[in-house]
């Protein structure tokens, strides 16, 4: 039997996804440049995005309902990136050392911080917009889940504090990172960022891993 052809709907959906991704990738650098200039996301003009992203206005509105829809698409994309970058931490195991933890966190943060102004806009917008609130719930759920898995694995392996409640610990840590990165590190100079990475590593080491070594 010959292979079935994709349905018309599935093919159209796939084309639309690719089109949305192309527009998102074209506009993401423009958004980040405008946020770095100090603009709020709500103040970035569609004209700026379409002209500097080289996307016809009509094409934008064929693919996105509005700027919020675009921001949500960017957030989903950054979540995919973030889980890739932070995996260097989550994949550490029983031979974890403080140095390896520091390297993993420093590299992840160096990659994430250019995205911090955009993600801060997503988290801020979530207080006012249902679609962004759903996106934030999805993002935080994913990140808490990954940290929780790491902690559960570590408790089973004897290298994470066995007394911590893993879901709650993952939740506190995830929000600590969200807030510190979006409220402090995005505004900080390199020396302050390095200092915060060092202090953050020391904090995670003492809270999660050191107690298991004392047991």
């Amino acid at each position: 039997m010959p292979p079935r052809e994709p349905t018309t709907d599935a093919a159209a959906s796939s084309r639309r996804s690719r089109s949305r991704a192309r527009i998102r990738d074209a506009m993401l650098p423009v958004i980040e440049a405008e946020l770095r200039r100090g603009l709020a996301y709500s103040d970035i003009a569609i004209r700026t995005l379409t002209e500097q992203g080289d996307v016809p206005r009509s094409t934008f509105y064929l693919n996105f309902a509005d700027k919020t829809d675009l921001l949500r698409a960017c957030a989903d994309h950054v979540l995919t990136e973030t889980t890739g970058w932070a995996a260097a931490w989550w994949e550490l195991g029983e031979d974890i050392t403080r140095e390896a933890l520091h390297d993993a966190l420093a590299r992840a943060m160096a990659r994430y911080l250019p995205r911090a102004p955009l993600m801060a806009a997503v988290y801020d917008g979530a207080r006012y917009d249902d679609t962004l609130r759903d996106a934030v719930e999805r993002i935080t759920g994913e990140l808490v889940g990954r940290v929780e898995e790491h902690l559960v694995r570590g408790q089973a392996g004897g290298w994470v504090d066995p007394t911590l409640l893993p879901h709650e610990a993952a939740s506190w840590i995830m929000w600590m990172y969200e807030r510190t990165q979006h409220q402090e590190m995005r505004h900080a100079d390199d020396a302050t960022i390095d200092r915060l990475v060092d202090a953050g590593t020391h904090l995670l080491w003492r809270t999660l891993y050191a107690p298991a070594r004392r047991a």
């Binding site: 506190w172 600590m176 807030r179 510190t180 402090e184 200092r195 060092d198 020391h202 904090l203 003492r206």
Partner: peptide, 24 residues
């Protein structure tokens, strides 16, 4: 613990409590 960077540690903990209290 004397080895802690007081300012850096205070920054992380303050933001953790600030956000966690309202969100969690």
């Amino acid at each position: 613990d004397a080895s802690l960077d007081a300012r850096g540690t205070a920054t992380w903990i303050a933001w953790m409590i600030e956000r966690g209290m309202t969100q969690l």
